[in-house]
């Protein structure tokens, strides 16, 4: 191998960082353009609003990314969010302490994730199918539990949380940091994170190398379910109701954020910072389009086009190496 070849190869190692910086630059660029284009964008109120909008998708996208890295997909997360709003609302209204209601809701998310793991590992179902099945049935269970009505949450302490801020930053955004930092350490600096990548790259080779593949798959879906249930709690606090039809289509936004953030749907490629940036890029586009009075139908088209463009350029760069 010549020294020239070594020089060519070097940038590959920093690829993740580079891609992250590119996304960050794109986000900053969007903010600058929107600040110039519309006076209301840079207002404190709007920025706080944008951070709140983006936070929930961002947290879902992190869990989703764990699953996608193993080569799977979790279509149920939107439905889990809706279902979690119902669980937490019912428990609070039934007089349980708030901490217990939240803990129980998170455990429901864990249980749903474990069920996905069971379906994939023990029943041999494709991830797409088992999570599609939970998507539809969870909405149904939620509707049965509520008779199709919304539940108004009778606790101001609970709902106040999502509206208040800490050192000038909305609490919801703090939650992204609360999830993001441990997630980053887990994925990039722990052996379980390595196992997610190895299973996504080659499950058989991982098994023969002593990796517990089944446990790794359980773990990915459980974390995704947990993240989604957590978002359900945050959403319930933000809108003050429990409603099983909430968060319709959020699973696709979470997947889109993850993919914009550089996650490969073929598995074994992904990060934590990428999906977080992806989620806020999507939130910024929606927010900016609202402020600019762009027809909301156009927002969907723009989002779709953006996914194609970013993934196309990402693929070009990877192939170019």
């Amino acid at each position: 191998m010549s020294t020239e070849a070594i020089a060519v190869e070097k940038p590959k190692r920093n690829y993740n960082v580079l891609f992250g910086l590119t996304l960050l630059a794109l986000l900053v660029l969007l903010w600058i353009v929107l600040s110039v284009a519309t006076p209301s964008f840079a207002s404190g109120n709007n920025i706080a609003n944008l951070l709140r909008q983006g936070s929930m998708i961002a947290i879902m996208a992190v869990g989703q990314t764990f699953v996608i890295i193993t080569g799977g997909i979790d279509l149920s997360v939107g439905a889990v969010v809706g279902f979690a709003t119902v669980v937490v609302a019912m428990m609070i209204n039934a007089g349980f302490p708030i901490w217990l209601a939240i803990l129980a809701t998170l455990l429901v998310g864990v249980a749903i994730g474990m069920f996905h793991g069971f379906g994939i590992v023990k029943m041999g179902l494709p991830p797409f199918i088992i999570t599609l099945a939970t998507l539809t049935s969870l909405r149904g269970i939620g509707l049965l539990m509520t008779n199709g009505n919304s539940i108004n949450i009778k606790s101001d302490t609970f709902t106040a949380f999502s509206r208040s801020s800490f050192v000038g930053i909305p609490n919801l955004f703090w939650m992204v940091i609360l999830v993001g930092v441990p997630a980053y350490i887990f994925l990039h600096h722990s052996r379980w994170g390595r196992y997610l990548f190895s299973v996504g790259s080659n499950a058989e080779a991982s098994r023969l190398s002593g990796v517990n593949v089944q446990r790794t798959i359980y773990m990915a879906y459980t974390l995704s379910g947990l993240c989604a249930a957590f978002v359900g709690v945050l959403l319930a606090a933000r809108i003050g109701i429990g409603n099983p039809t909430q968060a319709e289509g959020w699973e696709l936004q979470a997947i889109a954020s993850s993919v914009i953030g550089g996650t490969s749907l073929f598995g074994a490629v992904g990060s934590v910072h990428g999906p977080l940036l992806g989620a806020f890029i999507l939130a910024t586009i929606n927010n900016g389009a609202n402020l600019l009075n762009v027809n909301s139908f156009w927002q969907r088209i723009i989002t779709g086009a953006l996914i194609i463009i970013i993934v196309y350029f990402d693929g070009l760069r990877r192939r170019g190496k």
Partner: peptide, 9 residues
Amino acid sequence: RDQGLCLNL
């Protein structure tokens, strides 16, 4: 390829 290596890592 099938059992020994994670090729894209």
